[in-house]
Design a protein around this nucleic acid. Structure first.
Lengths: 101, 101
DNA sequence: CGTGTAAGGAATTCTGACACG
DNA sequence: CGTGTAAGGAATTCTGACACG
C-alpha cells in the first residue's frame, strides 16, 4: 500500500505540464537542466520526466534568479548544502559505529 | 508550502507513463475510461492526464477484472459506495446543523 | 547570461474501426 | 466483453542554432 518512493519524488510529469505547474517556459526549464540545477529522467524515446519535487525546486530556482542570482551561484549553493549534509551524516555514522579514525 | 490538492490527486501523468506504472496497455486504460471507471483530465490539445490516485484505481480495476468481474459491475460497486458515503455525510450535516426535517 | 524563436524531425497520443470471441 | 492492432492525423517534445544583450 505504501509506495517505495513517495509520489513526490517519482518522475512522471512531462515538460509541458511542468511548464504549466511552474509558470516557466520550456526553454527555461531545459536551460536550468543544462546548468545542472535540475535532473529529469527520460522515457525510452528521450522525453523528459519531472517529479513534484522537481516542480518545487524549479519554482525556488526561478525565485532566486528573479532575485538576481546566477545559475552557477545557485548550483554552488546546492553543492555546499549537499556537502554539509554529507559531513553530518558521516559524523553520525562514525559515532554510531564507533569507527572514528 | 502545502499544496491545495495533494500530489496524489493532481492529474499530471500521461497515458504512456500511466501504462508503465500500472502495467496495463493504453488500450485497456482508454477502455476503462469509456466504461466510466476512470476520469482523466485533458490538456488543451486533448492529451489525457492521470493522477497517482488514478494509477492506484487502475490497478484495483485490473485486479477485479482478473477476478472475473465485469466493468459494469465494478462501476455499480463504485456508485453504491459513493451513495453510502453521501448518505453518511448528509446525516452528519443534518445532525450538526439540526436541520433534520 | 538567460531566454525567445523558427526549423525539422522524432516520439507520443488521439479517434474510429476491424477483429476475435 | 475486453483487448489487440493498423491507420492517419494531430499534439508534444527534442536538439542545435541564431538572436539579443
Amino acid at each position: 500500500m505504501v509506495p517505495l518512493s513517495s509520489y513526490k519524488d517519482k518522475k512522471v510529469i512531462t515538460i509541458g505540464v511542468t511548464s504549466e505547474l511552474t509558470g516557466l517556459s520550456e526553454r527555461q526549464i531545459r536551460y536550468y537542466e543544462e546548468r545542472k540545477l535540475i535532473f529529469p529522467e527520460r522515457t525510452k524515446g528521450g522525453t523528459r520526466k519531472y517529479s513534484f519535487r522537481d516542480v518545487e525546486r524549479l519554482v525556488e530556482i526561478a525565485n532566486k534568479i528573479e532575485d538576481g542570482m546566477q545559475t552557477f551561484e545557485i548550483r554552488r549553493e546546492e553543492i555546499k548544502k549537499a556537502n554539509i549534509r554529507e559531513k553530518m551524516l558521516r559524523g553520525q555514522l562514525n559515532a554510531a559505529f564507533k569507527m572514528r579514525k
